[in-house]
Design a protein around this nucleic acid. Sequence first.
DNA 1: TAAACAGTTGAACACTTATTCAACTGTTTT
DNA 2: AAAACAGTTGAATAAGTGTTCAACTGTTTA
Lengths: 126, 126
Amino acid sequence: MSKNEYICDCSAVHTEAVEKALSSMPADELIGAVASFYKIVGDGTRCKILFALQSGELCVCDIASILSMSKSSVSHQLAKLKDSGAVKCRKEGKEVFYSLDDKHIFDIFEVSLEHIKHRMEKKDEK
Amino acid sequence: MSKNEYICDCSAVHTEAVEKALSSMPADELIGAVASFYKIVGDGTRCKILFALQSGELCVCDIASILSMSKSSVSHQLAKLKDSGAVKCRKEGKEVFYSLDDKHIFDIFEVSLEHIKHRMEKKDEK
DNA sequence: TAAACAGTTGAACACTTATTCAACTGTTTT
DNA sequence: AAAACAGTTGAATAAGTGTTCAACTGTTTA
């Protein structure tokens, strides 16, 4: 493996376009953060949990029954959502109530929903 | 396994809150579409490709050299992005030029970036 | 204080997914 | 026509992820 191959296994590169793209590329750290954020919401179960919490705080049992899932599975996903800063929780006796920690998520969701609905209609036309 | 367990393995359910959440829950189909959309952009490599394409069309070699990745790997990811409707391509001789098919993605990215930057700063304060 | 219950946790499992590798297609160049 | 090259593709591999299961913590109730 030559040193050139380590960087890229091809030669037909449009230098100008590549340099332009590289110069306007956000920092790796930022891109990583963006991807991580999307990864968290890129799962049906977690999406459903977030949508459910939009109507107010819920305990683990509530969410489990809304999604028809086990408490354990829901708890695992809630831990991830909490870890990522999307939700927070509050203990009250035996129960733990979860709520959205980050209302901004739904600003993003709203824009996305609009976009996706539009695209779904477009797809239906085919 | 009782029928009750199939639906949910717990009994402490706040009926009112659950019904409220259920009634405002988007259709499964829509939630699935949202999750799929986020799954596509919830990957560092694909995110980088999209950011790179924001500055204009690029061939596979260009992208491979920008990301320091193999053509094959890039091609696989481009196929997914194309499949999801995020990018389109145009053949010209031996080369294939990819470009964003869906500029709206960056409306969403912009809102998200703002949000994530804000959150990164908040985290740094700790 | 013991039983009951909400919730968490870690290991195990099945499943998905990103990258690599090698073989391939199709276009261009010699 | 053959060699060279851009790009694609499918199989294989390795890494990551969601759910289940069983054991556990901590709070409440009988």
